[in-house]
Design a binder for these strands. Structure first.
Length: 642
RNA sequence: GGCGGCGUAGCUCAGUGGCUAGAGCAACUGAUUCAUAAUCAGUGAGUCAUGGGUUCGAGUCCCAUCGCCGCCA
């Protein structure tokens, strides 16, 4: 039996799981289920990454022991995967003693091979990103603070004795490997990015830390803990028994694919292969880096706290719908937006109308005309053969797309076929056959339609296991799905009873449905002050805002509006402007005239109640109190504020 | 700053230099009534971001500009 080993990244447990990690894991699950369906022996691995300074810090902030925090969070991940019906074969945790021993074994081998040496690391370190930065990479703020080029937060200067991995040594071998294996990293543009890095030459990598101890001790020098990424990457082999169970290990390794997010591509496509080369193990066959999801147009960000619990979506729409939407609407590999409206759109038109209704209408006719018993097919006509041939074509494309991870395309093809089945049904007009009493032909038409539906449900099993199983149940088919792949047609067992249950998928009225995300956004408004402290912007971002002192020349209330006041302001060198401000509840227009206020001078103009506003004034507000920002001493209008 | 990608119908996107630029969804029209107002058929005068250029011919190649994004520094 052919084997297939697929992995997700192991998720860092410094925060709760969100839709992004769910996305990777769902995709992995679909691929794993597909391979099992077509007869592979599959090992699907996921887990949690639990070491490193960030976790130590998160634990301290919560007043918890780090292990306790890891236990809690990894449990949440496990639970979520259960809720999402993920069929992982193992869940690895990097704090598992077996994993820790394996890491030490692996690193010992690297030591023996002379790929690790001791050196001094001096430089800047970003704790949240767990990353060291070179002097020429970091940003310096106006007041001389060194900040992380990636996240904008302050850096710590560290000088420590570290062990280094001779990554530089593997530049050439990796280049060779990339050249000889054009499909090693996908999509292609990600591969090219990595290739560029390799062509620039690799630097040795610091792989131990001494400033904290939440990690795996270096085997020869326990003062040092092993860098969390080295620790984490080894999970892919420790989970399958490297160094402990050679037989199992040899069965699964090398991995067929590491599914990852684009942000960790360098670790998987360069560092991990180099580590494997160092100890003489074969490399994974493929690294597939998918894109990022935004949710309703917003970036998912752990630090912003707008991460959405995938469970809420599942509770509302069901597992299958989420799985379908994620694979159908978001092209695998590219960035995409998780839009709840689009999801409902897909649910209504693809799932409920095209697919669910097809089963429903066919079963209804079996109930009425054949007393709920699936009839036996009779003599077949040309039109029947076309339906059969089209399925054969579909199956070919299905294999092709599924094997190259083009899941979106596979679904597209399946839906094109669902369209064909609906068409077949319409063209044969079974309701007329029933009226005419042509039971023979009616039997064939209904049988063929059900057979086609059964086949579609089978191809959809990896994507939507629940509804596919439901189709099998409704048609009382106790058959092995493999028959669908092996036999040409007539897999459906006649004389079985159909169950005319509720529609497979329920539609949702697009015009008035309550979005989950909206509810979350409301919460966000309440937490706004907290978030504003967290959401750091760079100095460059700040510089984009042109703040100016302005003198109010005229002020009048806008008719029909309770809140708005129209102001004519003097901006000195920038001339006069008209702005609209929502301050009528707090200020009488006449009292505003002459005041020196602060405005954003380069805001895009906007119309409020039909009146153009060419800027925005600044005011402080809390609860029901509002006060305008003014300047402490007299200064000319137009003065820049920085 | 360097390298790369993207910008195509209301929406999501396809489109090896060459007949009148496509698909799905939405919309509209017709058919139909077995079905969850469903399905089937038909309907697109889109500056293919902008401006140049190469070519007999460019969404497709080249250059520049604008906007968005990625990787690296």
């Amino acid at each position: 039996m052919k084997k297939y080993y697929i992995t997700t990244p192991i998720y860092y447990v410094n925060s709760e799981p969100h839709i992004g990690s769910a996305y990777t894991t769902i995709i992995g699950d679909i691929i794993a289920r597909y391979k099992r369906l077509i007869g592979y022996d599959v090992f699907y691995l996921t887990g949690t990454d639990e070491h490193g300074q960030k976790i130590l810090q998160a634990a301290r902030e919560k007043g918890k022991d780090p292990q306790e925090l890891c236990d809690e969070l990894s449990e949440k991940f496990k639970k979520l995967w259960e809720d999402l019906n993920i069929t992982n074969d193992y869940f690895i945790r990097t704090t598992d003693p077996k994993h820790m021993e394996t890491v030490q074994l692996f690193v010992s081998k690297m030591l023996e091979n002379g790929d690790i040496y001791k050196g001094i690391y001096k430089g800047w370190y970003c704790v949240p990103c767990e990353t060291y930065w070179n002097e020429d990479e970091i940003n310096i703020t106006e007041d001389g603070e060194h900040v992380c080029p990636s996240c904008g937060r302050p850096l710590n200067f560290v000088e420590e004795e570290n062990y280094f991995f001779r990554l530089s040594k593997y530049t050439q071998p990796l280049l060779e490997h990339f050249k000889n294996n054009p499909d090693f990293v996908e999509p292609e543009f990600r591969r090219n990015e990595m290739l560029k890095i390799l062509e620039g030459g690799l630097k040795d990598l610091s792989i131990t830390r001494t400033t904290f101890n939440w990690g795996i001790p270096m085997p020869n020098d326990p003062k040092h803990v092993i860098y969390v990424w080295v620790d984490a990457l080894i999970n892919y082999i420790s989970a399958i028994g490297y160094g402990r169970d050679e037989q199992t290990f040899n069965k699964w390794w090398p991995a067929d694919v590491h599914l990852i997010g684009k942000e960790i591509n360098r670790f998987h496509s360069i560092i991990w292969p180099a580590m494997l080369m160092s100890v003489g193990l074969p490399l994974p066959k493929k690294i597939f880096a998918h894109g990022w999801l935004t949710v309703n147009g917003q970036k998912i960000s752990k630090s912003l706290g707008n991460a959405i619990d995938p469970r809420e979506f599942v509770k509302k729409y069901g597992n299958d719908v989420i799985r379908y939407y994620l694979t159908r609407d978001i092209v695998f590999g590219k960035d995409g937006d998780f839009s709840e409206e689009n999801l409902v759109q897909r649910l209504n038109s693809d799932l409920a109308n095209d697919y669910g209704n097809l089963l429903h209408r066919t079963v209804a006719m079996v109930v009425k005309n054949f007393d709920s018993i699936i009839p036996e097919p009779q003599e077949s006509l040309e039109i029947d053969n076309i339906l059969i041939e089209k399925f054969e074509k579909l199956l070919k494309k299905y294999y092709e797309y599924m094997d190259s991870y083009k899941l979106t395309n596979a679904l597209e093809e399946i839906w094109a076929y669902i369209g064909e089945i609906n068409k077949y049904f319409d063209e044969n007009k079974p309701w007329i056959l029933a009226k005419e009493g042509n039971k023979k032909r009616l039997a064939s038409v209904l049988y063929n339609t059900l057979e086609a539906i059964l086949r579609v449900a089978t191809l959809l099993m990896p994507f939507m296991p629940d509804s596919s199983n439901e189709v099998y149940k409704r048609l009382s088919q106790n058959i092995n799905p493999e028959e669908v792949f092996e036999k040409k047609w007539n897999v459906l067992k006649p004389k079985e009873k159909v169950i005319h249950g509720r529609p497979l998928f329920n539609k949702i009225d697009l015009k008035n449905f309550e979005k989950i995300a909206t509810r979350k956004e409301e919460q966000k408004v309440q937490n706004k002050s907290v978030e504003e402290n967290v959401a750091l912007i760079s100095f460059d971002d700040f510089k984009k805002i042109d703040l100016r002192v302005a003198e109010i020349l005229e002020a009048e209330k806008i008719k029909k509006s309770e809140k708005l006041i129209k102001l004519i302001i003097n901006l000195g060198e920038l001339g006069k402007r008209q702005i609209v401000a929502g301050i009528a509840k707090y200020y009488e227009p006449e009292k505003l005239i002459g005041k020196k206020i602060v405005v954003v001078a380069n805001l895009k103009p906007a119309k409020l109640m039909g009146v153009e506003s060419q800027g925005m004034l600044l005011a402080a507000k809390i609860n029901d109190k509002l006060t305008l920002l003014t300047v402490d001493d007299d200064i000319e209008p137009g003065a820049k504020i920085s």
